[in-house]
Amino acid sequence: MTDKEIPTLTSSRLILRALTLNDAESIFEYANNEAVAKYVFWEPHQTIEDSINFVSQINKSDELMWGIQLKDNPKIIGTCGFITYNSITKCLTIGYALNQNYWTKGYTKEALSMLIDYAFNNLDTIRIEGICVVDNIASEKVMLSCNMEFEGILHDNFIKGTDIHDCKLFAITKRNYLANLKK
């Protein structure tokens, strides 16, 4: 990805913003939950120090990761962003996690929609991909609701502990994104 600037993005209910070390407590609140960590690459946070290290690593990495907060509350309820970028294919890969207390309210869809819009209008990208473990129906629904199309199964693509999982691949291209805007 280009430079590391994380702009603040807003919707009717959410603010997406850069993470700071002050967010570690809010992140720990959900990152220590086994249900939240079940389908992500990181293990549940055991201490607040794990969450502090998470924020530090994100801010030092090439990832563009936003904290998700409600407009009326500065507490971070999740994260979403672009975890990889291939400059040759101009493809971004998305990732997200949300505090279980806020599941099924449409916040992840709202955040992901903002990121897709931001990427296609501001970054040098023509494709955004996301994967989810085959059993992660909630994540699948989020990507489908953001007009990402199912493209296939990636066999033995995700390892969590000693378990190996197949994943579903979803993507949206800039061409299809623009075509959907005209509808």
Rank of each mutant, 00 (worst) to 15 (best):
R127H: 03
S145D: 11
G130Y: 00
L154Y: 12
F170R: 06
T108C: 15
E129M: 14
L123I: 05
Q100C: 12
D156C: 07
N157A: 15
L154R: 15
S113T: 08
E110F: 12
S145V: 05
G161L: 09
G152T: 01
A171K: 02
V134Y: 06
M143L: 12
E149F: 14
D156H: 12
F150V: 13
E149Q: 15
I126C: 09
G95Q: 03
N99A: 11
I116W: 01
F120V: 06
E129N: 15
G152I: 04
F120S: 02
K105M: 13
V142K: 01
Y96E: 00
T104D: 08
M148N: 10
A97V: 13
D163P: 07
G95S: 11
L98N: 05
E151C: 05
T125A: 15
E140R: 02
A171T: 07
E151H: 06
M114H: 01
Y102C: 01
D117Q: 14
M114I: 02
D124C: 09
N122S: 09
A171G: 10
S145H: 10
I172C: 11
N122K: 07
N122V: 04
N99C: 08
L98A: 04
K105I: 05
T104A: 09
H155C: 12
S139Y: 12
S139G: 10
C146F: 08
K141F: 00
N136K: 05
K141Q: 05
E110I: 11
M143E: 02
D117L: 11
V133G: 01
G130F: 02
M148A: 13
D124G: 04
V142R: 00
D135F: 12
Y102A: 03
I116S: 02
K105L: 14
L144E: 15
K160N: 08
G161K: 14
G95L: 05
S145G: 13
H165P: 00
E151V: 00
F150Y: 15
A138L: 08
I126H: 07
G95R: 06
V134H: 03
Q100V: 10
G95A: 12
G161H: 11
I153F: 13
L115T: 00
N157G: 15
Q100P: 02
M143V: 02
F120T: 02
Y96D: 03
L115H: 06
I137R: 03
F120P: 02
A119C: 07
N121V: 08
K160F: 03
L154T: 09
N122G: 01
Y118R: 14
N99Y: 09
N136V: 04
R127S: 06
L154C: 14
E151N: 11
T104E: 10
L169S: 09
F170Q: 01
D166R: 05
A111Y: 00
A138G: 13
I128H: 01
D156L: 09
I128Q: 03
K141M: 04
E151L: 04
D135G: 06
A119H: 03
I128P: 01
I153T: 13
A119F: 06
T125Q: 07
A119Q: 02
T104I: 08
A138E: 09
L115E: 07
N147H: 15
I116F: 01
D156I: 00
K105C: 11
N99V: 06
N121L: 14
I131H: 15
I159N: 06
M148F: 03
G130T: 04
G106N: 05
G106K: 09
L98S: 04
